[in-house]
Amino acid sequence: MGLTAKSTGIYAFLEDLNQSSVKADAIIALAGNPNTGKSTVFNGLTGLNQHTGNWPGKTVVLAKGNYLYRHKNITLVDLPGTYSLLANSADEQVARDFICFGDPDATVVVADATCLERNLNLVLQVMEITPKTILCLNLIDEAKRKKIEIDIAALENILGIPVIPTAARDKTGLKELREAIHQTVFGKRCNHPKPMVYSENIEVAIEKIQAEVENLFQGRINSRWVALRLLDGDTTIIQEMRNYLQRMEPKDQPVSETYKEVECCGSFGSRV
């Protein structure tokens, strides 16, 4: 039952994105745990009126919006609120598939500053897929009220990605967030996300298959992450990979522009 690959339709959705009347200069994915004010950030950036509320996993349907910053037309895709990208709810699959196979130019993860530790799980998982990750530390005002102090510089340093504190309800920090997105997509800035290091036998196994994965997908998606998922034996993603391969087949074109950029930036594990 339920959502087949076609009906959740990352590809249908992507086609829809491309057919929009205004051509987007960049597509940005917006991920985050439920109840982090993700929809408020979305509304704050795009000005699109959309329902927001602390309803776990409420944003089931993908919403998108546009904004103009420095003459660039940015399309923002509001992904379902999820706690991780590992479990198998329809929501988490949609979020994961979009970040992994939808090839967004950057992914913003909205986190609740009042419970950073729990939110970091998703941040780390997104960072594993793409180096072009930006952490939006929302509800920073609430954290302050709860006497929680977060060392932004230290966090940025450890994670190796931009960290922007915001209070989206009061539109605080949204300008900085726009700038960070701009820099990540169009600027020279390269992220060096902290690599996750697993236990030795997993690392050995990854090494065994990573090179072959790289060849198979012609480097289009992050081979280390794919190798890890294959080891995990996650059936839903294996199906999605098959779909991806099938779509890759007819166009045997050289590696895309986007990929080259990623390559320049994508120094997974180079900064251990």
């Binding site: 950073l116 780390l124 929680i148 450890i158 996750m196």
Partner: peptide, 14 residues
Amino acid sequence: EAQDIAEKAVKLKG
């Protein structure tokens, strides 16, 4: 890892 990072970056003041 998340726990580790949070410990380094988050301080509880009172």
